[in-house]
Computed example of a mutant assay.
Amino acid sequence: MAVVPPRRVALLGGGFSMDEDGLLDDWLLSHAGVARPKVCFVPTASGDAPAYVEQFESAFRSRHCEASVLPLFRRELDDAALRTFLLSQDVVYVGGGNTANMLAVWRVHGVDRLLREAAARGTLLCGISAGANCWAEGSHTDSFGPLTSLRDGLGLLPGSVCPHYDSEPARRPSYQDAVATGRLPAGWAVDDGVGVLFTDGRVQEPVTRAPDARLYRVERDGHGRASERGLPCRLLGHG
């Protein structure tokens, strides 16, 4: 009987686009599962912004990996080549930007289907902000301007996700209200500086580069209110 690899998703509250120390990206690569991983950056949510791509290439060029970028706004690969390319990656790293627009573009190009196939094959899927939102069933997003609930996502991670939980003051009350009222299912709120690896939908390892940053489980209690529970995170860079 064939062995089914675990489905792995990592949510990042930082990385090359936010942090200078590189701790979260180094932690991420340590879970790639191979000595020199193939890492593909997907910048769809930013409209394939050139400056964002340059940041990724600069940060990962010096790391022990084989870095590449998948542009979709000026796509060069046909369907067969796109499938071969994505399924050959050890890590798919999705950037931030507009979650709703990104999901729509992915579906037009069939990338959503290919990412599900990659997950089933054991590829580590990860990302920051919109790149964290996309893996869940729903998310807390500013894709439409004001913060709101998006009951849309790839569903590879059960529940919902809220990024920037500590750095944007409106996030905490807005996300808690969405969970309390049922607009979003229970889920995970990620402070900036936190990284968390999920294996088959369960928390495997939460870490942080900032002593005060946390990962939170936010659920609806029996009284129609949201309850918040912080999970301990291992502090990176301190042994």
Score class of each variant (00 low, 15 high):
residue 1 M to Y: 00
residue 1 M to G: 13
residue 4 V to R: 15
residue 5 P to M: 06
residue 8 R to C: 12
residue 10 A to K: 09
residue 13 G to M: 05
residue 14 G to T: 13
residue 16 F to E: 11
residue 24 L to M: 09
residue 26 D to F: 01
residue 26 D to E: 15
residue 27 W to T: 09
residue 30 S to Q: 12
residue 31 H to P: 00
residue 31 H to V: 01
residue 35 A to R: 10
residue 37 P to E: 07
residue 38 K to L: 01
residue 40 C to A: 15
residue 41 F to P: 01
residue 42 V to Y: 01
residue 42 V to E: 02
residue 47 G to R: 05
residue 49 A to Y: 09
residue 50 P to K: 03
residue 51 A to V: 00
residue 56 F to V: 06
residue 57 E to G: 12
residue 59 A to L: 05
residue 60 F to Q: 03
residue 61 R to V: 05
residue 64 H to Q: 13
residue 64 H to W: 04
residue 70 L to K: 06
residue 70 L to R: 05
residue 75 R to H: 03
residue 78 D to F: 04
residue 79 D to I: 03
residue 79 D to W: 02
residue 82 L to V: 05
residue 82 L to N: 05
residue 84 T to H: 10
residue 84 T to L: 07
residue 85 F to A: 09
residue 86 L to P: 08
residue 87 L to Y: 05
residue 89 Q to L: 04
residue 90 D to E: 14
residue 95 G to D: 04
residue 98 N to Q: 07
residue 104 A to T: 15
residue 105 V to Q: 08
residue 108 V to I: 12
residue 114 L to G: 08
residue 115 L to R: 02
residue 117 E to G: 03
residue 119 A to L: 15
residue 120 A to K: 07
residue 121 R to A: 15
residue 123 T to M: 02
residue 126 C to H: 06
residue 126 C to P: 06
residue 130 A to W: 03
residue 132 A to R: 07
residue 132 A to I: 04
residue 134 C to Y: 02
residue 136 A to W: 03
residue 137 E to I: 00
residue 139 S to H: 04
residue 142 D to Y: 07
residue 142 D to E: 14
residue 144 F to R: 14
residue 145 G to S: 10
residue 146 P to H: 10
residue 153 G to F: 05
residue 161 V to S: 09
residue 167 S to M: 11
residue 171 R to V: 14
residue 175 Y to M: 02
residue 177 D to T: 14
residue 180 A to L: 06
residue 181 T to A: 08
residue 188 W to D: 04
residue 190 V to E: 02
residue 193 G to L: 06
residue 198 F to D: 12
residue 200 D to S: 09
residue 204 Q to H: 14
residue 206 P to V: 09
residue 207 V to Q: 04
residue 215 L to W: 02
residue 215 L to I: 09
residue 219 E to F: 01
residue 219 E to P: 04
residue 220 R to Q: 14
residue 229 R to P: 00
residue 231 L to G: 07
residue 235 L to E: 06
residue 239 G to N: 10
residue 239 G to T: 09
residue 239 G to H: 10
